[in-house]
């Protein structure tokens, strides 16, 4: 009997090894789709708190660069505002119509400011954690943008934090179009470089040049139309040779991002209910 027990205990580590590896495998398959469980992701309270301290400390270090970027952005916007004001004055002068559809679109959007507290770009499925949650009005499926363009889509929320599926995620697929044309497709990231994404299914008769602008199409309720995504860097043939596949240089460098805005679309529920009918 004693012999028997000894023999069993000599192999107990094998059993433990297998058990722990199976457990890891279970975690791997169960929780890598994030939405399934908020508590086991970076958005859980403990992890988010630690990441938030870190983000606070880092934001001081990154302030000069952020400031420079903001100033530059400000100048561009100021410039645009001047041009628009000028144009508005012209249209008012020769037409009584002051109806502005763009204004109409934006009126129904509320921007919720947030800071990124955890970020990754090196994985196949990258996620971000931001410090705005359900208490701030964030809900899953809302779009997240920065001053330079689209960042991602909210996938899960806790009271004070949200988990955002970055555009650098193999499951991300954002409806986009070539600015000024009706050609649209889906923007996908295939791993690798954090500034390279692809737009599929662009018809062969489309006139495309390197440097053409890609923006959101507005077909989904997540992003309004016309938000900057990036520029065409390379025009390639799709794998079946029937269409173009565009390599896109993304405008937003997710790796160096701190301040973002969540787009809260008050019409979203309405649009979604129409889509499901």
């Amino acid at each position: 009997m004693h012999d028997f027990i000894e023999r069993i205990t000599a192999y107990v580590h094998w059993a433990l090894f297998l058990l722990l590896e199976v457990l890891s495998g279970f975690l791997l398959f169960q929780y890598n789709h994030y939405q399934g469980s908020v508590w086991f992701t970076q958005a859980n309270t403990a992890a988010a708190m630690v990441h938030e301290w870190e983000a606070k400390a880092l934001s001081y270090l990154r302030m000069p660069a952020e400031n420079a970027a903001l100033v530059r952005r400000n100048i561009i916007l100021q410039n645009k505002l001047d041009i628009l004001r000028h144009e508005l004055a012209l249209t008012r002068a020769d037409s009584s119509s002051t109806h502005n559809p763009q204004e109409e679109v934006l009126r129904n959007m509320t921007l919720i400011p947030a800071q990124i507290v955890d970020n990754s770009v090196r994985k196949r499925d990258n996620m971000l954690v931001i410090n705005a949650g359900s208490n701030d009005g964030v809900a899953p499926e809302m779009g997240v943008v920065s001053g330079t363009g689209v960042v991602g889509i909210v996938s899960a929320v806790t009271q004070h934090h949200s988990l955002v599926m970055s555009i650098l995620n193999s499951h991300s697929s954002i409806s986009c179009r070539l600015r000024g044309t009706e050609y649209f497709g889906y923007l996908k990231w295939k791993g690798g470089k954090p500034l390279r994404a692809y737009m599929d299914d662009v018809p062969r008769h489309a006139h495309i040049q390197k440097g053409d602008v890609i923006e959101t199409s507005g077909f989904s309720s997540v992003f309004p139309a016309g938000i900057f995504l990036g520029k065409v860097a390379e025009i390639k043939n799709s794998s079946d040779g029937l269409a173009y596949e565009l390599e896109i240089l993304l405008s937003t460098d997710i790796a160096n991002l701190r301040h973002v805005n969540v787009i809260s679309n008050q019409n979203k529920a309405e649009i979604d209910s129409l889509l499901t009918q």
Binding site: H13, L23, S24, G25, L28, Y31, T41, Q42
Partner: peptide, 28 residues
């Protein structure tokens, strides 16, 4: 002990996973 070593490994991996959002990868 080999079991203790395994628990150290798994525990360390689990914590690393939770913070990095790589459930199960580091622990395995």
């Amino acid at each position: 002990s080999r079991s203790a070593a395994l628990l150290w490994g798994f525990g360390t991996g689990l914590i690393a996973d939770i913070f990095a959002g790589t459930a199960g990868i580091s622990s395995a």
